[in-house]
Computed example of a mutant assay.
Amino acid sequence: MTGHSPLVSVIVPNYNYATSLELCLRAMQAQTYRPIELLVVDDGSTDDSVAVARRLGVRVVSTERNMGVAGARNLGVAHARGEILVFVDSDVAAYPESVEVAVGMLAADPRLGAVCSIHDPEPLIRDSLVEEYRALQYYYWTASSEGPISFLFPALVAMPRRVYDEIGPFNTQLRETEEVDYGHRLTQRYDMVLTSAVRSRHDHDDKLFKLLRKLYRRGRARVPLYAQRRRFARGFETSNRAGGSLAALAAVAAVPVAALLGPAGAALPVLALAVSIVADLGMYRFVLRRRGPLFLLYYGAVHFLVNLAIAGGVAAGVARWLCSARFRRLYEPDLRVLPSAAGEAVS
């Protein structure tokens, strides 16, 4: 990149997030970096998201059908003019200096293909205890993974336009795991970092079932990629954390076995549960220091369910991978659908 200040295109994919969209857009309008163009890609919202964006004077590209976040990001790029692309989800509010810091990091290192933000441990909108759990859990897992990663965090990420053009669009076939695929492709050619220097707040899921369902689906959908690579992503989804999830599932599976074995088998589920706890012991210590023992009990119970959802999703994914050739080819390039300008409207 040259010594001038490159135009930054901020692309905000949105689907029915009117509640947080205003906070997201106002945060982008308050960025210390200039010049910025701000674009909302509304993906068929049925709420008043478009009205929110227009009231703030933000340009909107609307799709006639729901494309998913991958397609919305690709469509945003098709309308962007900037040398730097910043993708920010509509439930994320960036700190005022976030874009400036990210652009500076990209300018300092031509080998750096993407800079990803770490969200604060407090949610953007405090709606429930589940959301407080998720904010702390997500923060700890990301903060402890700070540095080089192979797992893209697209909720707030900056990358040069030339890198996007070289790597290609997000895979629109993938609705739950497009970021893992994109990070894998990007890090074949460039470095990628997760940094607390680029800060933001996220309006996390506030309903337990919604969170568990999302994590189950993600665990299932990532099996073909991890089977193909034969290793976990660098940072965040580590073998240690995967082991904790599997141990939680083993603890549940061991209960009927223990009943058959009698008193001698009672130790099996207890041992599996202990392994699951030890796998995330650092996280539990962090939560204890921050919120105290009473919240930790609640946190531990929810995290056990989260581990079960993740492990259950992986187990379902393995079964599907064994039975479905199409599922095994989910991440192959010939399945990608390129972005189309058909059926869009610009305002």
Rank of each mutant, 00 (worst) to 15 (best):
E37S: 08
L38R: 08
V40S: 11
V40K: 09
D42N: 04
D42E: 07
G44C: 09
T46F: 09
T46M: 08
D47T: 10
S49A: 12
V52H: 03
V52F: 04
V52W: 10
R54E: 13
R54W: 07
R54G: 06
R55Q: 14
L56Q: 07
L56S: 05
G57L: 06
G57W: 14
G57F: 15
V58W: 02
R59T: 06
V61E: 02
V61S: 02
S62M: 12
S62E: 11
R65V: 15
M67Y: 14
M67E: 11
G68H: 15
V69D: 13
V69L: 10
A70G: 15
A70N: 03
G71N: 02
R73Y: 08
R73M: 08
L75R: 13
L75N: 05
G76H: 03
G76I: 04
V77I: 14
V77N: 01
H79E: 13
H79F: 12
H79D: 07
A80I: 03
A80D: 04
R81L: 10
R81D: 15
G82W: 02
I84Q: 00
L85Y: 03
V86Q: 00
V88Y: 12
V88F: 14
D89W: 14
D89F: 05
D91A: 07
V92C: 01
V92P: 02
A93P: 00
A94W: 07
P96T: 07
S98K: 03
S98P: 13
V99R: 01
E100R: 15
E100K: 06
A102D: 01
A102M: 11
A102E: 02
V103E: 01
G104H: 09
M105Q: 04
L106H: 00
A107D: 07
D109W: 08
P110W: 04
P110F: 04
L112T: 01
G113K: 00
V115E: 00
S117C: 15
I118G: 04
I118R: 00
D120Y: 14
E122Y: 11
L124C: 02
L124D: 03
I125Q: 06
I125R: 04
R126T: 10
R126K: 13
S128D: 05
V130R: 10
V130G: 06
Y133E: 11
R134G: 05
R134L: 09
A135M: 07
A135K: 12
L136Q: 09
L136R: 08
Q137S: 15
Y138A: 15
Y138E: 15
Y139K: 05
Y139G: 05
Y140N: 08
Y140D: 08
T142D: 13
T142M: 15
A143R: 14
A143F: 14
A143H: 13
S144K: 11
S145A: 04
G147H: 06
P148S: 08
P148A: 10
S150K: 00
S150F: 00
F151Q: 00
L152A: 12
P154R: 06
P154W: 11
A155C: 14
L156F: 06
A158E: 02
P160N: 01
R161M: 06
Y164G: 00
D165A: 07
D165E: 15
E166L: 06
E166S: 07
P169S: 03
P169D: 00
F170D: 00
F170I: 09
